[in-house]
């Protein structure tokens, strides 16, 4: 692993107010974590030429992701991190294709490979612990650099919006005032 070109470690952490990808569909919880930033130590950011809130690329040997950076002094300079599984594919989880989760949120998994590059141990060795086969998520090494000025202010990669499936509720309206006892009628949820 070429740690000169890819000097930084990239991690994800699970937020206390969301559990993996289960809670972007939750109207209350997604107001707390709507989209995710990449948290970077200010000195690391300055060394890579971008400011707080700028659009940047995270690149690993197999892929790259575009997202927004957020300065944080609460992270070790050699590490960048984001919240786990806040970013979603457009249109999934009952959300509108324009929801923050797909337009401003991103998924770090794209840059983490499930297999090691071919090595003497084998052609397709799993990117895991050799003793237990545990996925070595946090071994991923990345480099970060600012996105060009002209690039669209949307995270990448983007996917064709996922369609709603039969049996799913109709698209919810602009307002939702939940009062137990009267909600399902108002939100046109069939039982």
């Amino acid at each position: 692993m070429d740690t000169q070109t890819y000097p930084l470690n990239a991690l994800t952490q699970r937020p206390m107010a969301m559990y993996h990808s289960w809670d972007s569909q939750n109207a209350w919880l997604r107001q707390i974590h709507t989209h995710n930033y990449l948290f970077v130590n200010p000195r690391t950011a300055e060394a890579n030429g971008f400011g707080d809130g700028d659009w940047i690329w995270i690149e690993s040997p197999i892929n790259k992701v575009r997202c927004m950076a957020r300065f944080s002094e609460a992270v070790e300079p050699g590490t960048v991190w984001t919240w786990n599984a806040i970013g979603k594919a457009a249109g999934s989880w009952g959300l509108s294709p324009k929801a923050n989760e797909s337009q401003k949120g991103f998924l770090l998994n794209h840059v983490i490979s499930e297999e090691l590059p071919p090595c003497e141990a084998g052609e397709h060795m799993s990117n895991s612990d050799p003793v237990t086969g545990q996925a070595a998520w946090f071994d991923v090494r990345v480099r970060i650099y600012p996105a060009e000025a002209g690039e669209p202010e949307v995270t990448s990669p983007q996917f064709k919006p996922q369609k709603r499936v039969p049996g799913q509720d109709p698209k919810r309206g602009k307002w939702q005032a939940f009062v137990a006892g009267a909600f399902r009628k108002k939100a046109k949820i069939q039982e």
């Binding site: 107001q31 707390i32 974590h33 709507t34 989209h35 957020r70 944080s72 923050n100």
Partner: peptide, 8 residues
């Protein structure tokens, strides 16, 4: 401040 408790 880092997070104001909501994002929308």
């Amino acid at each position: 401040q880092k997070a104001q408790g909501f994002m929308g």
